[in-house]
Design a protein around this nucleic acid. Structure first.
Lengths: 233, 233
DNA sequence: CAGGTCACTTGATAAATATCAAGTATTGAT
DNA sequence: ATCAATACTTGATATTTATCAAGTGACCTG
């Protein structure tokens, strides 16, 4: 693997505290690969051969059952994914595909498990990463069970606005609407109607451009809660 | 804390590999407490002061938002809960209450974090536990998004049947129906109707007693998948 | 820039699910 | 055992959400 990637992934919280020795050992046999959009990287049910690191582009995690499909998450760089399957040496529970041209690093799962066994620092970083991931999906589950689709959309928009920093009134949706609909657990048609239904609360939609004209009004409807909507806790 | 509990919790995968020294240190300041039913142990949003171990009884994890409540999980002995909040030193994302007379061990979160920092073995056990918990809730999320409430009930019944071992045709629901309804993400009235709707597939209900007359028939409807329904992967 | 593909929207309808308002069982306490 | 409280069930209705069927609009691609 070219050295120029070392720094970039070294900065990830998962690897930053690692000894140089462990880090080098972890990268043995790792390689960088570029993918066009819409390429399936992982099929759920397959055994975990690699830990993936997204360096650029975007990757969708999704799952299927009985002919239905749902979007579970969209990964943005620079992030590792499917860590839990890797450390457990278990099959993947989610599939993954690129949504745009993407560059990934593939770390042999074996390496991850070996360093995990021998390097206490790495084990600690993995704990932090897994605990974060666990809490993140707990919030998602709470949202699915406690909110209607309209409420989920309203809160999603507020989160996206906050993520842009500052709280600018305008921002672009980071994904296609049909994928957003699936992520929020609704049919694409209903996402269209849900956007309409948020107009009275000051939400304007023009293509992928969202304008929140009256944040206070939208918040009054959405009733965001840190225990569901705050990514940092 | 009385010594007689040591063996019992020592057997938990989370603690079994721990050195005696670490184990003793972990238990400093821990105490055993008995609770009657319907006592709130944890309010979501509170800071994580203890790691809980359920020794006997049953505990419901639940969450609320905007006046609504949903049951997230029911903990059975002997199990630890809210590990993620403890190791991250973060607020609890779920509330907890006893559903019957229960005995719990409360381990100061501080201890957990201290031993986690100093004992590599413990860190590794925490990784396993968290990875398991993460994968478990991923399955739950998939089920919520991919299945209708009737399908969720059918698969739940098959899982419960399998959990009893052997695959006996009869078993008792391990919780009240209203709580089961909330856990499965449906109104109690709809759970009643869903049971009725499963009659054609050989499901008989008498109080909390469930009889599955034709497992093959029910499976043909439920279409269970290991990637959602198998707790062991 | 023309044409085709595909995402998105809109309207109509159907299905799933929740709510409300009775009832009927079951449970627990005295 | 009796009574009250509470869980559960059932029916009627309302709401939410999905599906189907046209459209319209955006974005490639040649």
């Amino acid at each position: 693997m070219p050295e120029r990637y070392h720094d970039e992934i070294r900065r990830l919280p998962l690897f930053s505290d690692l000894s140089d020795e462990s880090f080098i050992s972890l990268l043995q046999g790792a390689y960088v690969q570029n993918f066009p959009p819409q390429i399936t990287l992982i099929d759920e049910g397959d055994t975990s051969d690699f830990l993936y690191i997204l360096v650029s582009g975007a990757v969708e995690m999704f799952s299927t059952w009985n002919g239905r499909e749902t979007s579970m998450d969209t990964i943005r760089p620079v992030t590792t994914f499917i860590l839990a399957a890797t450390v457990k040496d278990a099959v993947y529970l989610m599939s993954a595909r690129t949504v745009e041209k993407s560059r990934l690093i593939l770390l042999p799962s074996e390496n991850v498990r070996r360093i995990f066994e021998t390097d206490a620092t790495f084990a600690k970083c993995i704990v932090t990463e897994l605990a974060q991931g666990y809490r993140s999906i707990v919030k998602t589950s709470k949202e699915l069970k406690l909110r209607t689709s309209l409420e989920r959309l309203a809160n999603y928009l507020l989160r996206e606005q906050a993520r842009g920093g500052g709280g600018a009134a305008e921002f672009d949706l980071p994904m296609e609407k049909r994928r957003l609909a699936s992520y929020l657990g609704m049919a694409p048609e209903n996402l269209s109607r849900a956007f309409k239904a948020l107009q009275p609360y000051g939400v304007e939609v023009a293509g992928s451009r969202i304008t929140i004209n009256d944040e206070a009004d939208l918040r009054a409807f959405a009733k965001p809660s840190p225990l569901i909507d705050d990514a940092s806790i």
